[in-house]
Design a protein around this nucleic acid. Sequence first.
DNA 1: TTAATAAAAATGAACGTCCGTTTTTTATTC
DNA 2: GAATAAAAAACGGACGTTCATTTTTATTAA
Lengths: 222, 222
Amino acid sequence: MPKLSAAAIQGRKDIIEDAARELFIKQGFHATSMRDICKRAEVSLGNLYNYYETKDSIFESIIDKYQTVIDEDLRSIFAEIDEPMEPANLRKLGESVGRLVNEHSDFWLLMYIDVLEFQNRHFRKMFDGITDRFRKVFGEKFKEAEKRGDLRMGVDAAPVFTAVYMQFFNYFLVEKLFGGNQHLGLTDDQALNCLTKVFAYGTLSEDGLARFKKTANKSLSG
Amino acid sequence: MPKLSAAAIQGRKDIIEDAARELFIKQGFHATSMRDICKRAEVSLGNLYNYYETKDSIFESIIDKYQTVIDEDLRSIFAEIDEPMEPANLRKLGESVGRLVNEHSDFWLLMYIDVLEFQNRHFRKMFDGITDRFRKVFGEKFKEAEKRGDLRMGVDAAPVFTAVYMQFFNYFLVEKLFGGNQHLGLTDDQALNCLTKVFAYGTLSEDGLARFKKTANKSLSG
DNA sequence: TTAATAAAAATGAACGTCCGTTTTTTATTC
DNA sequence: GAATAAAAAACGGACGTTCATTTTTATTAA
């Protein structure tokens, strides 16, 4: 048998990792055996070790691959936000986060696995210095908004924006993974409106609210 | 040997559950063996089965016991809040939640174990209908605040209060378990101030802000 | 007060199964 | 037949649980 092409090898790994991911998510890392994985991937047990040194390394490979997908998603979410403190954009952020959580809930379960079974070794960087990162992306916009007087006195936009982002994330994670069915007593749409409104009124000055009035009227009704 | 007193039996179970809890939290449920537990509890392997039918039931017993502790803590946290929408009280809520998370971070790890390894079977009720529960506790106060005109027009206090509560929780959980060291770029104190301020300004009307001004000045500075 | 008793508690070896991994064997392609 | 992939078999060890046995001790009888 000649050596498989790199693409072919990656294809085999994809199949294995898809199977493993589904199992890890359904029943956890330690509750999933190599035999479970090989059965679902329709590969022999021994053959798994032609592609991975250990069971741990399958896990690591999965989250490495997933991380790049999530990073790219987040990048494009932030890329389409031109004015970060505008209520309409905050709401759009919320919608995007909701989509991200729902489409990739697997990923966040893997994060919990990592917290529990690997002392959060692989996800450490997820939240560390997140506000600084937002400051890097939107710092100029934050400064402009402050200079224009859009922000209430004493408000630093960066931590507030981070808080909004975290709140959206937490909202959808609780909905998706923790069994809180409409835990705010609202539909997702209404919850997004409610949260956006609170953060907008909590952050923006009279001037800021007026400036964004047109879009605000659209996005904050309800 | 005549039957041990109920207290004596509970004492033995406490020892076993303490050992099991520490291990579950450190390495997860499936990664912890009955032998690990019996060793740490200094009890023989077989004897575990005089107190628990299965390994699963040890887990269940632990979270049942813990749940009552947490419930009591939460009850007393809410009991000392007389005016839920007052900024000073929101901040106090935040401090209390911070204490709860830090003192009982074990409990929240058990929740993640439950999400991963038991499909959240035991913690389902944690967030389900939480807003309604707050409405039961503070409903009268919410109505009064609305009647007084303390709330911005169209603001329903219950979901906002829930959102504040969730945000505080999430903030401290990220800090404690997910390696976000000062992820808002602020100290805990500053973060509490920032979040409280945003939610206060985001929710209260001019009248409401004025009414709470005295306390607000104290709690919202910084 | 003490010794005998009986029931409960504690023990640890053993069971069958499954674990992650390694080694060996077989199949496939050039 | 050399090289590579895939499959199968085998390995030692650990798993949750069971169970025959031993140890413990509150009660009872002396």
